[in-house]
Design a protein around this nucleic acid. Structure first.
Length: 209
DNA sequence: GCGACAG
DNA sequence: ATCTTGTCGC
């Protein structure tokens, strides 16, 4: 049983990140991916509103399953320690879902100072394939071919939205996925003219309700 | 030491 | 992320 204790302090979070970073599987070690779950959290009045949306990779217009939770905000936002603030609400929400083959997280995966962004944390703890998709860069540098490297390693890829908006999305491995597969899956689930893949776009919308 | 810094 | 009016564009 993969039993992890939610971190309570920054030091505790860093300790877990180093431990989990070693357990991330960066290859396509998974079964068929059909149902994709997108999770996002919004905040208001001291509460964290988390939303999880499951969609069939074959139909981007139908929500197969959905769940929402409202939790007290326990920690402040600290760059690099995002999981300290959102892991709790997200794991609570994922428990309410019946089924999903992969989870897309609104944040980075391996493209992180300690190679353990929120997507890796959620993926390893749940031992589920996971992908990190962030709206801005935390670290690393984008090369001309759009791949992003950090410390001599290629850990991410920047997707530029087709729309006239200069919106970029930074994709990296969460767990049990290769970067190439993660990028193609994100692209395949992003509608024309849209910035975020449907599961994340809808999770974002639902979390604000 | 200084600056940068997922949501 | 959130606080916020009008405003530009499909």
């Amino acid at each position: 049983m993969t039993g992890y204790r939610l971190p309570t302090t920054p030091a505790g979070a860093i300790r877990q990140q180093k431990e989990i970073a070693r357990k991330v599987i960066a290859t396509d070690d998974h079964g068929e991916i059909r149902f994709v779950c997108g999770v996002d959290v919004s905040y208001r009045k001291g509460m964290a509103h988390c939303s999880a949306v499951v969609m069939d990779i074959a139909d981007l217009n139908i929500v197969v399953e959905q769940a929402r939770t409202k939790s007290e905000i326990k920690h402040p936002y600290i760059p690099g320690l995002f999981m300290l603030r959102e892991a709790g609400p997200i794991l609570r929400t994922l428990k309410r879902l019946k089924h999903y083959d992969l989870v897309m997280v609104d944040g980075h995966g391996l493209l992180h100072p300690r190679r353990c962004g929120l997507a890796c944390y959620v993926g390893v703890v749940k031992d589920k394939p996971a992908i990190g998709a962030a709206k801005s860069l935390l670290c690393g540098s984008v090369r001309d071919d759009n791949y992003i490297e950090l410390g001599g390693k290629t850990l991410g890829y920047m997707i530029t939205a087709e729309g006239r908006r200069k919106k970029n999305l930074y994709v990296s491995i969460g767990h049990r996925m290769s970067l190439e597969s993660a990028v193609s899956l994100v692209k395949s689930m992003t509608k024309k003219e849209e910035w975020l893949p449907e599961p994340l776009r809808l999770a974002d919308t639902y979390s604000r309700l």
